[in-house]
Every structure is written in C-alpha cells, then in structure tokens.
Computed example of a mutant assay.
Amino acid sequence: MHLNIAHETVYRYASPVKRSTQYLRLTPSDGPSQKVLSWALSLPAQTSRCLDAYGNVMHVLTLDEPHLEIHLHARGVVETHDGPPQLEASQQQFPPAVFLRDSPLTQADAALRAFAEAHASAVAADAWQGLLGLMHALAEHMPYTPGETDAATPAAQAFASRLGVCQDHAQVFATCARLLGLPTRYVSGYLAADFEHVASHAWAETWLPEQNGRPAGWLGFDVSNQCLADGRYVKLAIGADYLDACPVRGMRLGGGLEAMRAVVQVSVAQVLPDQ
C-alpha cells in the first residue's frame, strides 16, 4: 500500500516571540513494516538533523528573529505492508525491556494497577488475545472524547476522568501492559482512515513473547479505533510516552498566548502497473 501524506502545523502567537527552538519528529524512517519512497519538509529556516535517543529522525529548528507565526509542512509517500497485522522484529540497538520502565506520563496509580490486574490471567495465557481484551475494555472505560485532556495529562489522570484521545489511550494502554510485564512503547504517526483526523495519530506497540506457536515481536494496538495496526499506519517516532515521540515539541521566549492548528491528510496512492 502506498500512502500519500501531507501534514501542516501552524503556530500563531499573541505577541512577537523573541526566540524559539522546535524539536521536530516529522520524518518517518524505513522499517520492517514501511519504506519511505519520498519525504520533504518545508520549514521557515535551516535545521540540524540527528537521531534522538530512541533512533527517531529529529530536526532542530531555531528561530532567532522575532516572529508571530511558525509554519511547518511535511509531505511524502510511504509504502506499507498490505495485509493483516503482523508481529514486527526488533531493530533497536537496545532490548525491548527498555520499554518496561515508566515515565513522567505513564506512572500507575491504584486504579490503573487494579484495571491491569483484572486482565493478568488472560494476558499470561495468550498475550495477543489478552491485550485485545484489555484494549476493548479500555475503550469502553474511556471513550474517545476530544478537548478534555492536553499534552501534559498523565495516564492516571486521563483514566480517572474516563475521557481522552488517542494520546491518552496509548499512554494508559502502555502503563497497563508494562504492569503486566510486557514492554510497550508509545508511537506517533499517521493513519489512513475513512474519518478525518486534524492532527497526527498515536497508538501503542507491545513486545509479545514467543507464545502459542507465534514468534516474539512488536504488535501495534490502537485503542481509539479498537484495532491492531496494519498497512494503514505509518510510524513517525517511538518513545516511552508522548513527550518522547510527539511530532513537535519546543520552547520559546515571549509570544504570550499560543494558538496551534494541525491538519493531516492521508490517502491511498494509485500505483500504476509497470509499462
């Protein structure tokens, strides 16, 4: 499957920003489930490119002149695996167990521990099926509800409110899976779907052990859509939580109130047969 992706993010400020630095994870990488055929960023200034601690491609954008707006554009074509969800072998330089640790936004409280424990026996018997059950139970407990949480909302708080968006679902799921002894990472990226997304998507990937005739590997769980990640999904970045993998994160001096608009368009590209 070939996916056309166009991602625009615009920041506007009430007063001039004197200086700003943005950390951009807006460039996907080749992996077992995807191949980047073309990709380009359109940014207001030159950037420096590097790999962050998790191996994500990161661009650092620094604006030293006063500005009232920042426009960020990313677009390209990514080829993905066209078929049912598959376990993905690890290609990281560090072991999956790194993703057993908690993080600032994925610390468990008593309520989350009790919720995870209710699924412990099912997960121990069959991690794939047991986590599907946890995913569906979580979606029922906290249905997708925009506008009730923000980027700084911890998993425990979102779970207690019984409301949230894909970011919250991914972080709560990761917290529960880690409590059950399964390494789980937060994933930011894109989803080709029949409904409209106004920003990038997020889901969780869990390292499943070799079990019941299946090999070990990563499997993506999208709580918001109650499905497994397949060829409709494109990964941008991974991390322990949103703060590690969000597409844009930065700091600024001045500017007052900030307004942000992000629009993502993902469509299936028509592939012409070889002549």
Rank of each mutant, 00 (worst) to 15 (best):
G254Y: 10
E88M: 13
V17I: 09
Y144R: 05
L179F: 05
L68G: 13
S121Y: 00
W207L: 04
V271L: 07
D82E: 15
P84I: 06
A192Y: 12
P28D: 06
F115L: 03
P66C: 12
W39T: 04
P143C: 12
A89K: 04
S48R: 15
A262S: 14
A114K: 06
M1K: 12
Q93S: 03
W203Q: 04
T9L: 07
Y190T: 11
P84Q: 01
H141K: 06
Q86L: 13
V123N: 04
H169V: 07
A14K: 01
Q107H: 04
L68E: 15
R49K: 13
T80L: 05
V248M: 02
Q92W: 10
M58N: 01
A229M: 04
H169I: 05
L100E: 01
R19S: 00
Q275W: 11
Q171V: 11
L236N: 03
H197L: 15
D102S: 14
H2T: 01
T106H: 04
E117T: 01
F94Y: 11
G133E: 13
A108V: 03
H81P: 00
A124D: 03
L112F: 05
H71F: 10
L112C: 06
P104D: 10
V268W: 08
H7M: 05
L100N: 13
C227L: 10
L132C: 12
D168C: 14
A116E: 04
A110P: 01
V36Q: 05
V264K: 01
A139D: 11
P95H: 06
D126K: 03
G220M: 09
S121E: 12
A160M: 02
H136L: 13
L228D: 03
D30S: 08
